[in-house]
């Protein structure tokens, strides 16, 4: 923990609020995340976890508060701009490009790391091919990283669900992020697949990528997290190591429905 603190914060939320009509989804959340750590966000259904991810990645504008990432304020930036700063994410329930091949899905992840424009894309194929080959090779490497290399040519939408999850993560990693947000990566996975997912998250951390994880599988959370944040009704009600959070009476109350 001490070590992580010295590394500094990569992301800070200050008094973040998000209101949908009458519903307060996030209610004055203040929290900072340490570089290189694995932080889990847990809480009952509707607690506001996904909304926090949507606020960080620019899919929703905060109603109030400030989001800072590596010294930059993210409020009001567009999602593609935030991605270009090095924040990747996956979606609750998986969002692939189902008609494209597995490899092409990951190649889209290399979009920011390549630059051929519309004119050269359509008119100058030989110049293009060099970059195309590079993009292809790098995408294959990321598929290998998650163990999907052999499925490269398959149509993404035809993969078994567990592999779709892995593919979505490979695609997010392909942007070479400093921070990755995973929204319930183990939901719908069987116990064997969940173990593989835990190993993958560990591997991601070893790449010096900071991980924030929303997850309902408590075994996975307690296993891999440096820190666990508990939110309920958009408010932080618990914060600490897996052990301390597990024994926190407020947290237990929230999960048992008070």
């Amino acid at each position: 923990m001490m070590q992580a603190k010295r590394a500094g914060h990569i992301l800070s939320l200050e008094n973040i609020r998000k209101v949908f009509g009458g519903v307060v989804a996030v209610d004055g959340l203040t929290v900072s995340v340490e570089k290189g750590s694995v932080t889990s966000v847990i809480g009952p259904n509707g607690a506001g976890k996904t909304t926090v991810f949507n606020l960080i990645t620019g899919f929703l504008p905060p109603s109030a508060g400030r989001i800072t990432y590596s010294g930059r304020v993210l409020n009001r930036l567009k999602p593609h701009h935030i991605a270009s700063l090095g924040i990747a994410r996956t979606f609750q329930g998986v969002r692939l490009f189902p008609q494209m091949s597995v490899l092409e899905n990951v190649m889209v992840g290399r979009h920011l790391r390549s630059k051929t424009g519309i004119f050269s894309s359509s008119c100058l194929p030989p110049v293009l091919r060099q970059e195309e080959n590079r993009i292809r090779q790098e995408a294959i490497d990321w598929l290998d990283f998650v163990g999907l290399k052999e499925y490269a040519e398959a149509v993404a939408g035809n993969l078994p669900f567990g592999n779709q999850r892995m593919l979505e993560i490979a695609r997010a990693l392909a942007i070479e992020p400093h921070l990755i947000l995973l929204d319930e990566p183990a939901a719908g996975l069987n116990s064997r697949e969940t173990i593989v997912m835990g190993e993958l998250i560990e591997k991601i951390r070893q790449e010096q990528i900071t991980v924030i994880l929303v997850e309902h599988d408590m075994e996975l959370v307690m296993d891999i997290s440096d820190r666990v944040l508990v939110i309920n009704f958009g408010r932080l009600i618990g914060d600490g190591t897996p052990e301390t959070v597990q024994d926190d009476p407020d947290v237990i109350a929230a999960y048992l429905g008070e």
Partner: peptide, 13 residues
Amino acid sequence: HGSEEAAASLGVN
């Protein structure tokens, strides 16, 4: 065309 959100999350403008 497959998913605007996913494309944007990968940096596609």
